[in-house]
Write a protein that binds this DNA or RNA. Sequence first.
DNA 1: GTCTATATCGGGATAGAC
DNA 2: GTCTATCCCGATATAGAC
Lengths: 220, 220
Amino acid sequence: MKTADRILETACALFNEEGEHNVSASDIAIALDISPGNLYYHFKGKDAIHLALFTRLQRELVGLLSTPLTDPNLFSDNEDSPVMRSWLFLTVIIEKMYSYRYLYESPSDLMHRYPEIDRGFQRLSRLKRAACEALVNELLGETRPSYPRLDSTINAMALTLTFWLSWDRMVNPGDKQDVIIHRGVLQLLSFCAPYMGSEQQSFYEECEVLYREMLAATNT
Amino acid sequence: MKTADRILETACALFNEEGEHNVSASDIAIALDISPGNLYYHFKGKDAIHLALFTRLQRELVGLLSTPLTDPNLFSDNEDSPVMRSWLFLTVIIEKMYSYRYLYESPSDLMHRYPEIDRGFQRLSRLKRAACEALVNELLGETRPSYPRLDSTINAMALTLTFWLSWDRMVNPGDKQDVIIHRGVLQLLSFCAPYMGSEQQSFYEECEVLYREMLAATNT
DNA sequence: GTCTATATCGGGATAGAC
DNA sequence: GTCTATCCCGATATAGAC
């Protein structure tokens, strides 16, 4: 693994653990057991590292958010139910966000400092909204009502997706990754429940089952 | 006005405008046209200022969140509709948050640095949740359905309330205070729409009317 | 209470040898 | 590519006069 990549990995890990502002360029160098001068040879300061990391996240997240829910590459078994597909779709997205979670702890701060990150977050917000809309369509199918403001529900979902990690950390500090992620998926799917009419009860049950299965699966 | 208060006012304004991390103790002193030494006489550094400001917000916000929706002191006219009362209730809360909005731009960051702020945000989250629950009860009244998960809706509302300012800034940068706040109120009230059955249409219309009235009122 | 002056410290950044 | 050494600077913090 090249030094440049090792720097990015280590920086991201430190940012996530210690909080972005608590990590200096020297801290990263020390963690890697290289000299500050060497680090500056690869990245001209913390700024360059931030931009590189954000660019990576953006590329990966754009890919995930743009993947159609019915993409055969995303799921092993195409016979899965819409709820199952939605669950997996949201899981991979939130997992990806979790691996760069420091970015979601102070987005405004970073957007203020770096114009590129500012534009990137705006773009990602739009993509998140589009992905939530696709998800709603997939889940509600033909039964989708022509509510005048399914719109505000979709907005609320995009907002929840964006700030879930911050919120959950605030309310349930110390919980472990799997719990945080799956709880988020469940919360997001719940947005569709009120619109499901007679299927609402079975929908809840399917979600509950998935939630427990997923938690059990990751604990092994 | 005492110097100590002037320091807090100016610090809060600067934090909101420039971003918390972009403001040093000297910046605050310069803005006030006092010496750094003088500032340190009143507050032992930025930390003390942060704690004092957060304590103030917390006190004020706890009061607002705990005010019953039917409190006669909150509203001039007790004949107002539930929607109207809810609208005003949310407006004063979000307005208060807006006046300390820097705190909501990087909550995780501040919570990481100050244990008091950490505990305070946790407490406020619980109060927000309780306030949202009261609001739902007020709005849905006897027609409130015994949905198994009105719970997840209330959680979503508390999350939205907490992160609305960050979200709206991310999606609609540069918008002015009134628009941001009223859009947030509208978004929050919309959570109740799916549960309103036959009254849904008139509920939407009442909200729309209020939204326009409020915007018009503040533009004069 | 308020000022000026100064001390201290840490992080960002570069030069030049290896 | 990597290291050591060093510089620069801004922010924090204190001392002591007024």
